[in-house]
């Protein structure tokens, strides 16, 4: 996880024709550790107007939701190591997909409560934006995933990977759903060009303006874990997850995930931020009808061919 920050800073450096952090360790590889140490030793500042219970709780909720969501991503097939069955993921639920959507929808509490409990106007506006944005784009994310689930005929992530391992990856069968998922995933993780809740040119730092030290680090880690989770889910749902020739499962998932992570960083370095009304119009008047039409068409095709 920590190396995601190193990866991002180095790649953005390259994309902007500069070097990025390269002093701490070989090629800057120890930079994330140095940053973490610094954050640990920072003073724990709490604003006088902050809510006593909710202010420390908010980053914890964010981090919990981010980590819990990752638990259902399957890394590989069930293998036998020294006679013991090792499952290819932390948990394999019958409704893994719904679990993931449910847990990630809890993550917004961290942002909203963090924004509200700080007692600062920038935080409050950031929290409001986060609530509206995440609720809007979650619909699109869900509808895109439902279309894929219809094709796969299962809600278990293991099942979805199994369905693709013997046939086409779902990105070919569901190209519209893939594009919808990609846009919604960037918006869900509050990354540029959809980073309005923490737009630093308008809101200082949005919902985490008043946070410092490890509390800030928890928000920060949660964001990167979320990015990794949606990348892994994209690889799982649309690019056959861990299945692939020659290499063992986890390697394939990692390679596919890395491609998406690069895409995220690339987007951030390339695109300017949307305006708030553009963001809402894009969600409700363009993407949502598209997602519904796609879902309807998928349902008809599945019903006819089955």
């Amino acid at each position: 996880m920590a190396y995601m920050t190193w990866f991002e800073r180095r790649v953005i450096g390259r994309l902007q024709v500069r070097l990025g952090p390269n002093r701490v360790g070989i090629g800057g590889l120890l930079q994330p550790l140095a940053d973490a140490l610094k954050l640990f030793f920072k003073e724990d500042v709490r604003p006088a107007r902050a809510d006593r219970i909710l202010f420390p709780l908010a980053p914890a909720i964010s981090l919990f939701a981010a980590l819990a969501a990752f638990a259902v991503i399957p890394f590989g097939p069930t293998t036998r190591i020294a006679g013991v069955e090792v499952p290819g993921g932390i948990a394999n639920l019958q409704v893994g997909l719904l679990y993931l959507v449910g847990i990630s929808s809890l993550g917004v509490y961290g942002l909203v409560l963090g924004g509200w409990s700080s007692g600062s106007k920038y935080s409050l506006i950031g929290g409001l934006r986060a609530a509206a944005q995440v609720v809007s784009y979650e619909l699109i994310l869900g509808l895109a995933l439902v279309s894929v689930a219809l094709v796969a005929g299962t809600l278990s992530l293991e099942g979805v990977v199994g369905g693709q391992a013997n046939g086409l990856p779902y990105v070919i069968l569901q190209p519209v759903a893939f594009l919808l998922y990609l846009v919604a995933a960037v918006a869900e993780t509050n990354r540029a060009p959809f980073d309005l809740p923490e737009a630093d040119t308008e809101l200082v730092a949005g919902y985490h303006t008043e946070y410092g030290g490890m509390r800030f680090a928890m928000f920060f880690i949660a964001e990167y874990v979320n990015v990794i989770t949606v990348s892994a889910l994209a690889a799982t749902m649309f690019f056959a997850g861990w299945s692939g020739p020659f290499l063992p499962g986890p390697h394939w998932l990692f390679i596919k995930m890395l491609a998406f992570l690069f895409l995220f960083v690339w987007l951030r370095a390339t695109l300017p931020r949307l305006r708030y009304d553009q963001l809402m119009r894009l969600s409700w008047s363009v993407l949502l009808p598209l997602a519904l039409i796609n879902l309807l068409a998928t349902a008809v095709v599945v019903a006819v061919t089955r």
Partner: peptide, 11 residues
Amino acid sequence: YAGAIIVLFLF
């Protein structure tokens, strides 16, 4: 409920 409705309450 937890993901959408109560978030809208908070909003």
